[in-house]
Design a binder for these strands. Structure first.
Length: 915
RNA sequence: GGACGUAUAGCUCAGUUGGUUAGAGUACAUCGUUGACAUCGAUGGGGUCACUGGUUCGAAUCCAGUUACGUCCACCA
């Protein structure tokens, strides 16, 4: 090694140790701890991470989401913003309770055996375990979050926020308790929201029955996919415009089996064209029928227990499970001769997302949030202020449509794990039991509840708290501001709220994004984030959505172990183009290998070695010690120096612009091309001869300065994407101590003065000549190590000038020992291989044994290509339509291309003629 | 039943407001251990841009339709 001061770095980057080391140092030294009071004049940047559910561990989707967030956060931090990235986890009420229920079942127990207290203790244990795993995974991903501000949706502060929000909404008349039809999940024995229901296509049947008219004058035919609900029928509806049945409206029918008299009603909801045009109406067990029941004042007969068995209203079927009862009802109807037919019927059945069983629409008493006033406010923000700004734009419409079309939100869940509803019932008023009509008080604390209750019902009142908990999304809806201290007014809220960007997948726009905007609009009078960046999901190698049920998840830690966190992060980001597109991850399940992550690992290794090379050639100096006093007009800059500096400054601009437009993938790709292509393949190669002392001393210093300067810049530019390797190398490069961090350095400044497109084009010509010469060498079968004699010919003054400057580059990189620049090709031996770039001819004379036929073949091939272009260009320029209508610059471009092609063709023909 | 997304090299994907010779990575083939890197370098082969029609001097790009895959929303018994 030429540099004794540079650390002896191995030739392969080992991510494992470096990543662990920096993760620990960052955290121990609270590098990412936010301080709201710091730099009052600096803008702030805040991302509150979407809290993962404490349901186990993180999957690839989390890794993707985290990579995007951390890249944004690190970028903005380096831009000098006062930055906070706040981590946390979500209690995931129903999801966690489902897991615990399953565990208990495996132990042969139920939650009632344990009792609420012991159950919750167990739930907290689970939370500690799963939450711990998740938080450690976030660390492994290199998230630059402020761990001192870590939150959990059920911790003390956030629980306070939930209480406050509930009480306020209740006091404002926006929360009410009422009897409504809800989606009932018999498996978890709880109400679930509309969003927790997923429709599934199933092959079922459509059963047709005959309901006789009570006056004996005939019958009507109705059909259903759920025959057992007929036990709860309280009417049959027909469309009042339907001539076939209009006369029946007002008559009564006798319900089979139970013999109940039910009316025929007219309702426009009924589709005359579907089925028979007669609909059985079960107001207590069907959403449409519920509405009809309300419209027509029909009785609501509930036939189900909460566990899905039939209750006493089911008559002889009482006690049977709903699906058993279905069969029994069909048999009985058949026996009674009123079953007309059974059709096979494919239809959608609503399934409970968590319980994995069909949900049952069921009347019950629940708590609701009145959604209209909240939705109106969020819509107003969107329409009038485009707030939040949705990226990509197409999701804005999806979000808007949903907001505009909402039903009241059922927020009570018959579960134990979660925020218990702060309502206390005066059970002494209703015989010691909580009934639908038991009076209640809503309060922030139990003491406050007693106070209110005593005032209303006297000192002897007995209180019992509502056993139900709130929908998980109630607390998640407060997340962007509850985590910053709301309802207290805090410095954090002041400084970081509203947050800058919410980064999340489209799958929870409704569940979560909209709930946050609803709550934030109401409680903080503004939208909780400026931008919403919606990304796609990670698909598996077969383009399938990764899911637990399909068991096709890819464990991010396996890939991290194999290739490193930086490689995984870089892969995930590099794959995302524009925004919002799903990404597909290459993966071999047998070997746990991924070609694309491997490519990123190789890129990291390339960077490592390039850095190693540069550091070995700086004579122990840091970039700061070498200094960078060069300006675009410094006389001692060579063509390649100006070129790489121009490219470098373009890349700074381009990377920033892309990141700020959420084009993270484009930014990542641009850096890859610059680092591997421009910097490593060309600049470093050209720098070698100067570093090895083959030029003057000034040239060596200049090249060292530039190498050091750009290398440091590269690490800064790449740091948001690959935080560990860049932090590691940057420390060696700058010889910084362990209390100084690249993560806190400022991003490279853009200096447009360095950008020189014309010069870049000149340099492209040199590169072109090198490529052609290399190609000729390969065609001629010249071994890579052998130096050749070659000629470069151009009759153009400007090209001559560029080539003169570029001569040493061509000699070095194309291994041309003797290289002559000539005006005319006559000076070349007859037996030469030839190629063209622009109007420059590159000639490789061949002595001795030469396969003439091969030379001719190559020339003919090249000529064929050029002639094809030539023809198309000539055709175009002869076309009056083109010449008259196309813009001048396009025509000029075509003319220039034509003359170049003509020159090329001529060169090739001449060459062929000589042979 | 609505709405949306995607279709380009064997594979994963780029391709800006239409401008002619459609690009990367990867895989493949050939050559290579010169003093950063074989997790590398050089070179090469490989595409009727899903299909059909239209607009235009000119279409991967714009329009209409078709097909395939995927996603979301929806109360049809």
């Amino acid at each position: 090694m030429t540099n004794p001061a540079a650390p002896a770095l191995p030739s392969q980057y080992e991510p494992k140790a470096a990543e662990a080391r920096w993760q620990t140092l960052w955290e121990q030294n609270q590098v990412f701890r936010a301080n709201p009071d710091l730099n009052p004049d600096a803008p702030s940047y805040c991302i509150v991470i979407p809290p993962p559910n404490v349901t186990g561990s993180l999957h690839m989707g989390h890794a993707f989401n985290s990579a995007l967030i951390d890249t944004l956060v690190r970028y903005h931090r380096m831009q000098g913003k006062n930055t906070l990235c706040l981590p946390g986890t979500d209690h995931a009420s129903i999801a966690v309770q489902t897991i615990l229920d399953r565990q208990l079942r495996e132990e042969g127990k139920t939650k009632d055996d344990l009792g609420r207290e012991a159950f919750l203790e167990r739930a907290w244990q689970w939370k500690e375990q799963s939450g711990g795993t998740i938080v450690n995974q976030l660390r492994r991903l290199g998230m630059s979050v402020d761990w001192t501000r870590e939150r959990f949706t059920m911790d003390e502060g956030l629980s306070q926020a939930v209480l406050e929000a509930f009480v306020q909404l209740y006091d404002q008349g926006l929360i009410y308790r009422g009897q409504y039809l809800v989606n009932w999940c018999p498996a978890s024995q709880s109400a679930v929201s509309d969003l927790e229901v997923e429709p599934k296509e199933v092959d079922g049947h459509l059963w047709h029955f005959r309901y006789p008219l009570s006056d004996g004058s005939g019958s009507v035919e109705v059909a259903t996919t759920r025959p057992e609900t007929m036990l709860g029928d309280t009417a049959v509806a027909v469309n009042p415009a339907d001539d076939r049945y209009r006369h029946l409206i007002g008559k009564t029918l006798t319900l089979p089996i139970l013999g109940r008299e039910i009316p025929v009603i007219g309702d426009e909801f009924v589709d005359m064209a579907f089925g028979t045009g007669c609909v059985k109406v079960t107001p207590a067990h069907d959403p449409n029928d519920f509405e009809m029941g309300n419209r027509h004042g029909l009785p609501f007969i509930n036939i189900l227990h909460k566990d899905g068995t039939l209750n006493e209203n089911g008559g002889e079927f009482a006690g049977l499970d709903r699906f058993v009862a279905r069969k029994a009802v069909i048999e009985r109807l058949q026996a009674d001769g009123v079953l007309i037919k059974t059709e096979d019927y494919r239809h959608t059945v609503p399934y409970s997302d968590r319980g994995k069983v069909p949900v049952e629409p069921l009347i019950s008493t629940q708590w609701f949030v009145k959604i209209d006033p909240l939705a109106e406010k969020a819509l107003k923000f969107l329409d009038e202020q485009n707030s939040p700004r949705v990226v990509p734009d197409r999701w804005r419409k999806v979000y808007r449509d949903w907001l505009a079309n909402l039903r009241d939100w059922c927020i009570s869940r018959q579960l134990w794990w979660g925020h218990q509803i702060p309502a206390w019932y005066a059970v002494s008023e209703t015989g010691g039991e909580i009934l639908d009509h038991t009076p209640f008080v809503v309060a922030r604390t139990e003491a406050e509840a007693w106070e209110q209750a005593k005032a209303k019902y006297g000192d002897t009142v007995q209180l019992e708290r509502d056993p139900d908990v709130l929908d998980t999304w109630f607390s998640s809806g407060l997340w962007p501001f509850s985590t910053l201290g709301w309802p207290q007014s805090t410095a954090d809220l002041d400084r970081y709220y509203p947050s800058s960007t919410l980064v999340t997948g489209f799958d929870i726009i409704f569940f979560w994004v909209a709930r946050m905007t609803l709550m934030a609009g109401h409680f903080t009078d503004r939208m909780p984030f400026q931008d919403v960046y919606i990304h796609g999901l990670v698909r598996d190698e077969n383009n399938k959505k990764m899911s637990k049920s399909a068991n096709n998840g890819i464990n991010p830690l396996l890939l991290i172990e194999k290739y490193g966190t930086d490689a995984l992060r870089y892969t995930l980001i590099r794959e995302v183009a524009g925004a919002g597109q799903d990404i597909r991850l290459e993966y071999d399940r047998k070997t746990d290998e991924s070609g694309s992550v491997e490519a990123s690992r190789n890129f990291a290794n390339k960077l490592w070695n390039a850095s190693r090379f540069v550091m070995m050639n700086l004579e122990g100096k840091t970039p700061a010690q070498l200094g960078f006093d060069l300006t675009p007009d410094s006389p001692n800059l060579e063509l390649c120096d100006r070129w790489i500096l121009s490219r470098y400054h373009q890349v700074i601009t381009q990377t920033s612009d892309h990141i700020e437009a959420y084009g993270l993938g484009e930014a990542a790709k641009g850096l890859y091309e610059f680092i591997w292509g421009d910097f490593c393949d060309w600049y470093i190669e050209l720098a070698k001869s100067r570093l090895y002392g083959e030029g003057d001393a000034g040239s060596k210093t200049t090249v060292q300065q530039i190498l050091a300067h750009i290398l440091e810049g590269i690490h800064k530019l790449l740091h948001p994407f690959m935080p560990h390797i860049t932090e590691e190398v940057w420390h060696s490069l700058t010889q910084s101590d362990e209390q100084t961090y690249l993560a806190l350095q400022s991003y490279p400044d853009r200096h447009d003065a360095w950008i020189n497109p014309e010069l870049e084009q000149d340099f492209e010509l040199v590169i072109g000549v090198i490529r052609v010469l290399r190609n000729l060498r390969a065609e001629a079968g010249v071994k890579p190590g052998v130096k050749v004699t070659a000629l470069v010919q151009s009759g153009n003054d400007r090209e001559q000038q560029i080539l003169t400057t570029g001569m040493p580059y061509i000699q070095a990189l194309a291994k041309a020992g003797t290289l002559t620049l000539v005006q005319s090709a006559d000076e070349a031996p007859r037996k030469s291989l030839a190629g063209v770039v622009g109007t420059v001819q590159v000639l490789l004379p061949l002595e001795g044994v030469v396969d003439l036929e091969a030379l001719v073949k190559k020339l003919e091939k090249d000529l064929g290509k050029v002639e094809k272009d030539l023809k198309s260009l000539q055709g175009r320029l002869k076309n009056p339509g083109f010449v008259n209508k196309a813009p001048q610059e396009v025509i000029d471009g075509a003319k220039a291309a034509l003359s170049e092609a003509e020159t090329q063709a001529q060169i090739l023909r001449d060459r062929l003629a000589i042979l």
